[in-house]
Design a protein around this nucleic acid. Structure first.
Lengths: 190, 190
DNA sequence: TTGTTTTTTTGATATTTATCACACTACCGG
DNA sequence: CCGGTAGTGTGATAAATATCAAAAAAACAA
C-alpha cells in the first residue's frame, strides 16, 4: 500500500497522479528490518531499488572475511547495487540494516516492460539512478583525498550526520583505515 | 557531420533510423585534440558528453597544485562530469587529451527539450549515463582495495590496456600513491 | 646525431599506518 | 545489580609509504 509518506518522498522527484499511483502500487513493497538484518544478500540477483524511510542501511562487500563498507543510506535516500542491477548479475555486495529500519522495496526491474508506456515511471527510475550515481561519485572523490586524517575531517565538515550515527568501526572501513588509526585520529594523536 | 564510424559506435547502444540521424546531427560535433590539449576546463559548465573515437582522455582535478587522476577514457568510451552536468554547476574536474585524440562532443544538454518527443535519444543518453556510472563504480571499488600493490595487481589483471598506455606518473595518481612507490611496486621491491 | 627535457628509477631517511595485545567503557538482558 | 558482549582506546612494534635528492633512462626537437 502506497502511504502518504511515500507519496511525499516520491513527489520530491516526480509528480504522479492518483491514477498513476494505482498503476505502480503493485511494485512497491514495505518492509521492517531488525538491527543487523540483511536486505540484499551476496550472490542474489538485484532487481530492486531500496528507499529508506527510517533507519540506516550499510552497503558493503566481504573481502577475505573482512568487511569493506561502501556506503550508508539514511532516511529519504536510495540505494541499490547498480552493477548487479544493470547487468543482471549476482550481487557482490551486501545491504544490511544497522539499526531497526523501515524500507520501501521498489521492484523496478519487474515493470521494465511497462516503462515505455509510462514516461513518469521511467523518469523516476532515471532520476533515482542519478542520485545513486552522484552519491557514489562523492564517496569516490572523498577516497581520493590522500591522507586518512583529511578524509575524516572532510566527513566531519560535509557529513556530520554520518560521523554521529555510524560506529567508529564501520566508519574506519568506509574511510579505508583500521579502527585503531581512526580512534587515534579522533583523539588528535596525528 | 555524422560519419559511418560514429553511426557504428552509436548503433551498439541504440538503433537509430536515417531520419533520426538527420534530427540529432546538429548536436554532434567532431574535434581533433593535440596532445595535452584541454577539452573541459575547470570552472566551465559541462553540457556535453564526450565520446572518444581515437586517443585517450584524462579526467582529473587539481588539489593544491597536485593532480589527482580520476579516470582515463579510451576508444569507444564515454566520459563527462556528471556532477556538473546534472546540477548545472561549474566543473571541478578537467578533461584533457594525453595523446592526439579524435573526440565527438555530444551536446546533449541542448536537446533536452526535444527528448520527450524522441524516445531513442532519451534512451541513448540514459544508457551512456549508466556506462559512465558503472565505470566510476568500478574505479571506486578498485580504490577500496586496501594495499596499493594489490590495486596495481588488480589493474594488471583486469585492465592491462591501462597499464600499457598510461604513464607511470599518471597511473600512480590514479591508484592513489606516489610515482616512486609505484615504480618500486613495479620492480617488485615490495 | 646532439643537446634538452621529461619521465622513471634508486637510495637514504622520516613519517604514517597496520598489527597485535590488552585495558577500558558502554550497553543490554537476566 | 551483575555479567556478558560489542565497541572503543592505548601502547609497543613492525611494516608500508612518503619525502627529498639525485642518477639513469627515455622521449623529443633542432
Amino acid at each position: 500500500m502506497i502511504t502518504s509518506k511515500l507519496k511525499c518522498l516520491l513527489n520530491n522527484i516526480v509528480q504522479f497522479s492518483e491514477d498513476e499511483y494505482g498503476l505502480i502500487e503493485p511494485y512497491f513493497e514495505h518492509v521492517t528490518l531488525k538491527k543487523n538484518q540483511v536486505l540484499l544478500e551476496e550472490g542474489q540477483p538485484c532487481t530492486s531499488i531500496f528507499l529508506v524511510e527510517s533507519g540506516v542501511l550499510r552497503n558493503y562487500y566481504n573481502n577475505d572475511g573482512l568487511d569493506v563498507n561502501l556506503s550508508f543510506t539514511f532516511e529519504n535516500q536510495f540505494v541499490t547495487n547498480f552493477e548487479a542491477y544493470i547487468n543482471r548479475e549476482p550481487s557482490k555486495i551486501i545491504i544490511q540494516a544497522i539499526e531497526k529500519s523501515e524500507v520501501w522495496i521498489i521492484k523496478s526491474r519487474e515493470f521494465s516492460k511497462e516503462k515505455g508506456s509510462f514516461a513518469n515511471l521511467s523518469t523516476l527510475i532515471r532520476r533515482i539512478a542519478i542520485r545513486v550515481l552522484l552519491a557514489t561519485e562523492e564517496h569516490h572523490n572523498m577516497m581520493m583525498i590522500n591522507s586518512p586524517a583529511d578524509r575524516y575531517r572532510y566527513l566531519l565538515e560535509k557529513k556530520p550526520g554520518l560521523i554521529q550515527r555510524i560506529s567508529l568501526t564501520h566508519l574506519a572501513s568506509y574511510i579505508g583505515i583500521t579502527r585503531e588509526t581512526l580512534s587515534r585520529i579522533r583523539s588528535n594523536k596525528y
